[in-house]
Design a protein around this nucleic acid. Structure first.
Lengths: 111, 111
DNA sequence: TTGCATTATCGTAATAAAACGATAAAACAA
DNA sequence: TTGTTTTATCGTTTTATTACGATAATGCAA
């Protein structure tokens, strides 16, 4: 089978993996940077900056939204996106926790 | 086409995406935890803990190794793995930098 | 040498992801 | 009303990922 055996792992492991998956494409990281570089929501203009088709960008935005990393609202014929800071902080905390928990071990490089 | 247009993005974005991809599966996060929880390299025993076939675990280990997150050496009939702390730190730093650079913006939630 | 234990690799199958074009929907302008 | 702009969705194709069993390779034990 090809379906990931997610059910066999802890919820924390699944959450981290899902978050990592949302970041696992340079286009989505670029989108987050673009959104963060603005003080306000961005309505349009995202497609113009990226070297991807409009439908592809829309797809990436949808994935970021599904992962909870960004918010999106409809503003007339346009759509506005901005970073969901609250969710981002929460999930960033989990990440930092993983790193720190890994790091607290003695860093013996034995191979 | 289905190939990711990685060449269209910055090296930093690609690096982060590649790192995120390595973490984008609960099994690989679980493996990192297992490795970090030990003081020494782990020779064997990884397969026993995970609910996956031996070949699948070997595949995940290979991906972590390719991403530079772990080291692996052959020890007789067994293989020994441990976390590559140096690479991990470096890449973790990049991640933290992304987070902090995102966070330095004012966190206006406008949508 | 022969067998055993361990791990990597190969082959294969099923699902997911990435990308695009075409089309639909929605709100505004003329 | 009709057209324009903007974005989402659908359908499709290509590639990547996940998973497993089977097999190969490796070094040790008997």
């Amino acid at each position: 089978m090809a379906t990931a055996k997610t059910e066999a792992f802890t919820q924390a492991e699944q959450d981290l993996a899902a978050f990592a998956k949302a970041l696992a494409h340079p286009a989505r990281i670029a989108i987050l940077k673009i959104l963060a570089a603005q003080n306000e929501c961005i309505c349009g203009k995202i497609v113009d900056v990226l070297p991807l088709a409009q439908s592809t960008v829309s797809q990436h935005l949808k994935e970021l939204k599904n992962a909870g990393l960004i918010n999106g609202t409809v503003d007339g014929p346009k759509s506005c996106y901005c970073i969901n800071w609250k969710a981002f902080e929460k999930i960033n905390g989990k990440f930092s926790f993983l790193f720190s928990s890994l790091k607290t071990q003695n860093e013996k490089a034995c191979c």
